[in-house]
């Protein structure tokens, strides 16, 4: 349960982190949402909460669990972001084709 919860918290943090990276935003062809500006620093609380959870479960294994869940979460976000980018790309391409078609008419 802790592993799932930690992975979720890490995923949320990394997703917010990706939204702050201009390169990631360009890749997915999205703009930074305005509300993210206000919650910029707040995202760093999430890994700490995950760490506290790990320690609460078992102190001797907390760090390995915390680090391993980070890796899994980063992989999940990378895969998800790649999927989102592909979806946005296809969406924009389809919209461009439609615009060109309408222009010709």
């Amino acid at each position: 349960m802790t592993i799932i919860l930690c992975t979720f918290l890490w995923s949320l943090f990394l997703l917010l982190q990706a939204c702050h990276e201009p390169k990631m935003l360009r890749f997915a062809r999205i703009q930074k949402p305005a509300w993210l500006q206000r919650a910029a620093g707040g995202r760093f609380v999430l890994p700490l909460v995950a760490l506290v959870l790990c320690f609460a479960e078992r102190a001797s294994t907390a760090i390995p669990v915390w680090v391993a869940t980070f890796s899994i979460a980063a992989l999940l976000v990378a895969l998800g972001w790649a999927g989102l980018a592909r979806y946005r790309e296809l969406l924009i391409t389809a919209a461009d084709v439609r615009t060109v078609g309408l222009g010709k008419e």
Binding site: A18, K23, F27, A74, W81, A82, R86, E89
Partner: peptide, 10 residues
Amino acid sequence: VSDLMLLRPF
């Protein structure tokens, strides 16, 4: 850090 989750399979 910036390329941590940058995966472009296509």
